[in-house]
Amino acid sequence: MAVLVLAEHDNAGLAAATLSTVTAAVQLASGPVHILVAGRAASVAAAAAARLGGVEKVLLADNAAYEYGFAEPLTALIVGLAEGYEAILAPANTFGKNVLPRVAALLDVAQISDIVAIVSSDTFIRPIYAGNALATVQSKDRRKVITVRTTAFAPATESGEAVTEPVSAAVPVARSRFVGRDVARSERPDLTTARVVVSGGRGLGSKENFQLMEQLADTLGAAIGASRAAVDAGYAPNDAQVGQTGKIVAPELYIAVGISGAIQHLAGMKESKVIVAINKDEEAPIFQIADYSLVGDLFVELPKLCKLLSSSGAVEG
């Protein structure tokens, strides 16, 4: 079985999500694994893709139409290539989720979303109901279209030397126009791959108080997450939301502060290795899954914890 991976990249490099998706592809494939790098002047990203272990070929599609990762032109490109592959994979993040169902529909295939394990060439495990259940599903389609939960697959390593081949396709008339992006540049590690994540909830009470999470993150070299309630209230940006309908994280250490632990939140973080919860309500559901439960006022405990961490010079993330 030949497998095609749709790479997420920013032209200058591959997104970490791509590396995990490649691992899933290599696990699934019984034939070659190819990566499609579609972008504008994306040869540097293509070169990075060529170094990934298990990848036989990089398909480089260089066209201004692919610059912003719009679903419509990417779909036309992938559908044109699909004949050569039994499976097409992309990361289950906002990039992959936007494009791949469009591909699946045109190929008349049921997409298998957000797989966390590969059982066999046609059988996969995926969470449903906010991770309250795990479904084992078998695909009857000849071609599989799959999005991959990246926290469930280790990143591919740089151990390959793949060839790069240019590809192109007719670009459909553009009916989507790029207007702009508001992307916060942060010095912090990426939320989905950080070793330590500290998340704040409604308990923080205000955007100003949410600064406390910044201080905590500083002492740990951590990424900052948030509950939906904290995002809705404007304490944190939308891209910080962890959960069923936000980002999925699985760091070594996850510290939930002023978060009650609704099932929709747990869905995004319960695979973390060590979970710490700080909450003043000892009945808060988050304590049912926390390894270390601190029942107390966050405004008292957080500054103390920050002080201890900064004076000990905790490990950098």
Binding site: Y68, F70, V179, V183, P237, D239
Partner: peptide, 8 residues
């Protein structure tokens, strides 16, 4: 989107 907001 994962990085923030995009307008189209």
């Amino acid at each position: 989107i994962d990085g923030g907001l995009e307008t189209v």
